[in-house]
């Protein structure tokens, strides 16, 4: 039952590739946004956090459509990447990674923001009086203390990217080997009369990946709380 066909492997492999790239791509801006939202008060803060969290509630097809308008071959960002870097984003796996990154960003930022907010700033102050500058304090105190939350956020973003469907199929379509990630492959198999077996196999795989990701990230988030509680 659990032998995957080459076509199924292709979808799984593509989902892994898209998920990993999406996570790596969103880590730096994700951490930056989480840090800024956790630590600073500024005008338009609710607008920034609204934009970051919007993909959680917006219909994914709308997110995909907006991506298409921006990054499509005639969109301003799409033309910029095409002309300056020679990278085509729409209807390529790179576009799938971009869509997945944007859909995973809210989950990543939320987990990271909570863990950064939980870091006791008085510990940072203590480090400063001991002679550590801002960067050293950040690298030796803030980052290690919030690390479990950072990892939890990355795991959640990866799981979300691994299985993103709506924005991806709207933005980059359903091209086997290029943009047909695991959930899109499941959808395609379900359209064909003989596809039920492969669809169920891939569905079981997605359930397993999601479970592992949620358990892993919750375990990490608990570590944030115990670290802070024993300070």
């Amino acid at each position: 039952m659990f032998e995957l066909s080459p076509a199924e492997w292709e979808a799984v492999g593509l989902s892994l590739k898209v998920g990993l790239w999406a996570t790596l791509l969103s880590l730096p801006p994700g951490f930056f946004l989480a840090y800024v939202l956790a630590r600073f008060q500024f005008p338009l803060k609710s607008l920034v956090s609204g934009l970051v969290y919007m993909p959680l509630v917006l219909p994914p097809v709308v997110t995909g459509m907006l991506l298409l308008l921006l990054f499509g071959s005639r969109g301003p960002a799409g033309r910029f990447f095409e002309e300056v870097f020679g990278i085509t984003i729409a209807f390529r796996w790179t576009g799938a990674a971009l869509a997945a990154a944007i859909m995973g960003l809210p989950l990543m930022v939320r987990a990271m923001r909570i863990s950064i907010e939980a870091v006791d700033r008085r510990l940072e102050l203590a480090a400063r009086t001991l002679g550590a500058g801002w960067w050293r304090t950040f690298l030796t105190i803030t980052l290690p203390l919030s690390l479990p939350g950072v990892i939890a956020g990355a795991i959640l973003a990866f799981a979300k990217s691994f299985g993103e469907f709506g924005a991806t199929i709207t933005f980059v379509g359903n091209i086997p080997g290029e943009t047909q990630t695991l959930p899109i492959a499941i959808y395609s198999f379900l359209q064909s009369p003989t596809g039920e077996g492969p669809a169920i196999r891939l569905a079981v795989l997605s359930v397993a990946v999601s479970m592992i990701a949620i358990i892993g990230s919750e375990w990490m988030e608990r570590r944030v709380l115990t670290r802070v509680a024993t300070a």
Binding site: R122, L123, A126, I141, P144, L145, R227, V228, T230, A231
Partner: peptide, 8 residues
């Protein structure tokens, strides 16, 4: 007042 030792 509190020791503020680095917990990690």
């Amino acid at each position: 007042q509190d020791a503020r030792l680095f917990p990690h």
